[in-house]
Nucleic acid binder design. Structure first.
Lengths: 208, 208
DNA sequence: ATTACGTAAATTGTATACAATATAACACCT
DNA sequence: AGGTGTTATATTGTATACAATTTACGTAAT
């Protein structure tokens, strides 16, 4: 079923397009049960809208929608960064700092956003609020899904992103809540613009 | 299926208890398909944890969990109040103010939290951020579910709640973002304590 | 010509049967 | 006696058949 969601995301996502359960069954070669569960899951993430007897409508993801998503994500993660200040163990912090320093200096690429997701997960868990951490994890899934849809990659912005990550970690290590929150806010504003640009790029290239 | 969720919520919610799909089928007299969808929905709200081949575990809801939930809710709704300042139409605002003034002065009771939910919905929609509004709506469902679980009622706190609502509306009407955010924050802190107290009461009375 | 009604088609909601997988118990080996 | 492998059972994941509901179309009446 998890693979079904990935398949739906990878297929071309025309905003407003409708897909009935029967069409999805034919397209993916599975039965209606996993199709229904996958669509309900996507509805839970706010990616599709399920209308009775009308099929699932794929919601559009343009720059505006991405800015909205990142605005909510920012509320959650900025608070998590504030709460996590001074609460991440030294060894864990050092290993994260080493990883991002290496990435920044080597100019390496992280196509699956592996380190990025690890960083945000560690900060969320260090907040001490399980519910907040769980919501951030859910939004992480959403962000990853949207990245699939808009085809966002990290090429070109990687050194800058690593720097932003290091600023957040530095503030957390120094137990500076305000600085941690501010650094996270700035980082997510950059990420928001980057994602919106990817969406705009997809929109324009899909025109012809 | 919606009724199934209500049934699961109304049944005694012992934190940590496990319920297999087969048991739910026997208990509610429906087939596994709607049971599965209901459990997946509850998982999406973070009310149960689904472990493969182990049944669904009912997560506990004590004072600590409720404070966590309300902390997240506060992040969302405080921002919504800030954004909604000056954006609610006069007629809509006046009708809300009239309703809560009447409630406050008459000492009436709103057992299903009808007006409360309307107020928070109107503010969320006025924020202009559809995604934020959608998340607040989702948290409204969660809050309502938790109220069912812990048996929270609004008796006794109603005049105070109405006053808090009026403060929020006043600030929004005066286009004062800061005051609107502060009033909403205060209101949700009160609500958080009230919900936590209800959870504590349930815990202690369930002891014997 | 337009509207109302009825029927048929399509789509979702539900039930049940079957397959896959994980847990647990039990026997056997060391 | 303790550990390991195997088998049996329990539970979830999937497929298919059926019921209910809704939409759309066609026909007839005004």
């Amino acid at each position: 079923m998890r693979g079904l969601i990935a398949g739906l995301l990878r297929g071309e996502w025309r905003g407003g397009a409708r897909l009935t359960e029967a069409e999805a069954v034919e397209k993916f070669g599975v039965s209606r049960t996993p199709v229904r569960e996958a669509l309900l899951e996507l509805q839970g993430l706010g990616l599709v809208e399920l209308r009775r007897n009308c099929g699932a409508v794929f919601l559009p993801f343009g720059p505006n929608e991405l800015h909205e998503i990142y605005a909510v994500r920012s509320l959650l993660e900025v608070e998590a960064a504030r709460l996590a200040a001074g609460k991440i163990g030294k060894e864990s912090l050092d290993s994260l700092i080493a990883a991002f320093t290496r990435i920044r200096d080597s100019g390496g690429v992280d196509p699956d956003w592996e380190h990025d997701r690890t960083l945000h997960r560690v900060i969320a868990e260090a907040s001490g609020n399980h519910r907040l951490s769980s919501e951030i994890s859910r939004y992480g899934d959403l962000i990853q899904s949207v990245r699939e849809i808009v085809g966002e990659r990290d090429y070109g912005i990687h050194e800058m992103t690593a720097d932003e990550h290091l600023s957040i970690l530095k503030a957390i290590g120094e137990n500076d809540s305000g600085a941690a929150a501010a650094a996270m806010k700035l980082h997510l504003e950059q990420a928001s613009d980057s994602a919106a640009a990817a969406a705009e790029l997809m929109r324009t290239t899909a025109k012809h």
